[in-house]
Computed example of a mutant assay.
Amino acid sequence: MRCTRFLAFFVVMVSQAQVAEDVRRATLGNTAGTSGKCTVGVYVDMIAEVNIFGDSGLLRTLAGQPASWTHLECTSPLPYQMTDFKFRGVEGRGTQRLVADPRTNDSIAVVRIEDPRSGAANYTFEIEWSGGSGGYAVSGFLRSGAARPEPIRPARRAGLRPISAERALDLCRAEVHARGERDYGLLDIDITAVGVDTSAGRSNWVTGTFTARARSAPEAAYRFNCAMDYAAGQVGVVEFLRPDGSRLQPPGATAVSTEDQARLFRACQDAAVARVNQLGYQNVQFNSTEIDPRRSGWMTGSLTARRVLVTDTFDFGCSMDFRTGRLIDVQVTRR
Rank of each mutant, 00 (worst) to 15 (best):
D106H: 10
I108Q: 05
A109H: 05
V110L: 10
R112E: 11
I113F: 03
I113S: 13
E114C: 01
E114I: 12
E114A: 05
P116M: 04
P116K: 04
R117Q: 07
A121C: 04
Y123W: 08
T124D: 12
I127S: 10
G131R: 08
G132I: 00
S133R: 14
Y136S: 12
Y136E: 01
G140K: 14
F141H: 14
F141D: 12
R143E: 14
R143L: 15
A146F: 14
A146N: 15
A146Q: 15
P149A: 09
P154G: 06
P162L: 00
S164L: 13
R167S: 05
D170M: 15
L171M: 14
A174F: 12
V176Q: 02
H177L: 15
R179M: 15
G180E: 12
E181C: 04
E181W: 09
E181G: 13
D183S: 13
Y184E: 00
L187N: 04
I189M: 05
I191E: 05
I191M: 06
T192W: 09
G195R: 13
G195A: 09
D197S: 09
G201P: 01
S203W: 01
S203F: 02
G208E: 04
F210D: 02
T211C: 06
A212Y: 09
R213A: 07
S216M: 05
E219Y: 01
A220C: 10
Y222Q: 02
F224W: 07
N225R: 04
N225Q: 09
Y230L: 06
A231G: 08
A231Y: 03
A231H: 00
A231V: 07
A231F: 01
A232M: 03
Q234N: 13
V238L: 07
F240Y: 01
R242I: 00
G245A: 02
S246W: 09
Q249H: 02
Q249Y: 05
P250G: 13
P251L: 10
